[in-house]
């Protein structure tokens, strides 16, 4: 059923004109996309994997569903952010393909998570669906101030990467779910890298991020310091990497991304959530 639902979203037959229009405009974003068949096949796979999993695997699935709902909250926030971003004209023409692609990825992530949560017997209650990207007026005009839009985008993407990473261990007993979470995680990292580069920064998290996202005063700086908290870590599974390599410490810090706990992520995004 869920498989069919996703499939239908790519199938223009039996659709109203308006639905087809929405579909076709999405298609334009992927003007270099290969065959539609390939897309359908790929997009359908993970859902198929989930729905084929024995229910037994989720005997104690409340934690897993909690993780998925948490991820869904972040994906909805991102998706809404890029819908508005693309529609508002804040995105420059030469970056439009990138942000339309990001929007489409986030849409797929939202749909995938919603479908999966429901397939596992969960519901979507309590998952935020309304957002205020000014964070109550703290960041005015995110959809007319291009620099602010890009700074927020970077913060959301880098936070998303850290959020998925932090939840990976909670999915370790569910290999199929973990795999898809990792597949989303890496896409968020691609987004982060691209947006950072559009902003003239390195694609990876660097020393300069600890100074905050500049141009928007102390508030953004404080907010973004939470986004990058702990990213200077150079010790991994007990190995202090700076002691075993001649690579400069700055590069060692860049070479590992750090996880964030669910609570730390929620604290970061809370100001953007209305309900």
């Amino acid at each position: 059923m869920d498989f069919n639902k996703l499939f239908d979203s790519f199938n223009t037959e039996n659709k109203s004109e308006e639905e087809v229009d929405i579909y076709m405009s999405r298609k334009e974003a992927f003007k270099k996309l290969g065959s539609l068949t390939k897309k359908v096949a790929l997009a359908s796979l993970p859902v198929a994997a989930f729905t084929m999993m024995p229910k037994m695997a989720f005997a104690q699935s409340s934690d897993v569903i909690g993780v998925l709902k948490f991820a869904l909250a972040l994906e909805r926030l991102e998706y809404q952010f890029y819908i508005k971003g693309v529609d508002s004209g804040v995105v420059s023409g030469r970056h439009m393909d990138v942000f339309m692609a990001i929007r489409e990825h986030e849409r797929i992530h939202v749909e995938l998570l919603e479908t999966t949560i429901q397939a596992l017997g969960g519901n979507l209650d309590g998952v935020p669906s309304m957002f205020d990207f000014t964070a109550g007026g703290v960041f005015p005009s995110p959809f007319s101030n291009r620099q602010l839009f890009l700074a927020l985008s970077q913060a959301f993407e880098d936070t998303g990467v850290r959020a998925y990473k932090g939840q990976a261990p909670n999915l370790i007993e569910n290999d199929d779910l973990l795999k898809v979470a990792l597949q989303i995680h890496a896409v968020e990292a691609r987004h982060a890298s691209q947006v950072r580069r559009i902003r003239g920064r390195k694609g990876w998290i660097t020393e300069e991020d600890y100074d905050g996202i500049d141009g928007f005063g102390a508030t953004f700086m404080m907010a973004s310091s939470a986004v990058y908290a702990g990213e200077k870590n150079t010790t991994h599974v007990g190995v202090e990497v700076t002691e075993v390599t001649t690579v400069p410490v700055m590069a060692v810090r860049e070479a590992w991304d750090e996880p964030l706990s669910m609570q730390m992520v929620l604290d970061i995004v809370k100001p953007f959530i209305v309900s």
């Binding site: 270099k32 898809v180 890298s193 580069r197």
Partner: peptide, 15 residues
């Protein structure tokens, strides 16, 4: 400015 536009067309990385 075309990064991943035509690569991750299903929103998921490869595994």
């Amino acid at each position: 400015n075309e990064a991943f536009v035509d690569f991750i067309d299903d929103g998921l990385e490869r595994a």
